[in-house]
């Protein structure tokens, strides 16, 4: 069971470097063939300083810690009962290979439906780069099937 007292709880910030090799691996995994995401020179021709971070990859970088599910377990969530319900990204500044990004996350909301059979955990994350520029805001809603 989640505890509504955990609303506003802040998680330890995650610092992640955007590695070029990881971007290329991600491109392969999602079947990306658009050369802006696979060829540094074409990315540069398109105005980037290096390979760009594609739209959903920020979610992955946030998990770049030894145990990415620890925060959820500490709130009482079991991985076996948890599914992804909603996801949003709001973009402010592009991120590229070589950037050092910091992810500041907190529990934005906890609510339930069906008399507690389904619980929802809303996590909001602010992403900033090494120049303190606001890169993006990420909102993740997880559903826990009790």
């Amino acid at each position: 069971m989640l505890d509504k007292n955990d609303i506003d709880k802040e998680f330890k910030p995650v610092v992640a470097e955007v590695e070029k090799g990881r971007l290329l691996f991600f491109a392969k995994a999602i079947g990306e063939i658009n050369p802006t995401f696979t060829d540094e020179f074409i990315a540069i021709d398109n105005g980037y300083s290096a390979l760009p971070v594609p739209p959903t990859f920020l979610f992955c970088l946030k998990m770049d810690v030894p145990d990415p599910f620890e925060n959820y377990r500490n709130l009482g969530v079991s991985l076996a009962n948890m599914l992804h319900a909603k996801q949003s990204f709001t973009y402010h500044t592009p991120a590229v290979a070589g950037d050092l990004l910091t992810f500041y996350s907190h529990v934005a909301d906890i609510y339930d439906k069906k008399g507690g059979a389904l619980e929802f955990l809303v996590e909001k994350t602010k992403v900033v780069n090494q120049r303190d520029e606001h890169v993006a805001d990420i909102t993740t809603t997880l559903v826990i099937r009790n």
Binding site: T36, P54, P55, T56, S88, F89, T90, Y91
Partner: peptide, 12 residues
């Protein structure tokens, strides 16, 4: 171009 994308909001 990716720079045009301001927001993506989805439900699974």
């Amino acid at each position: 171009p990716q720079s045009y994308i301001k927001n993506i909001d989805v439900r699974f």
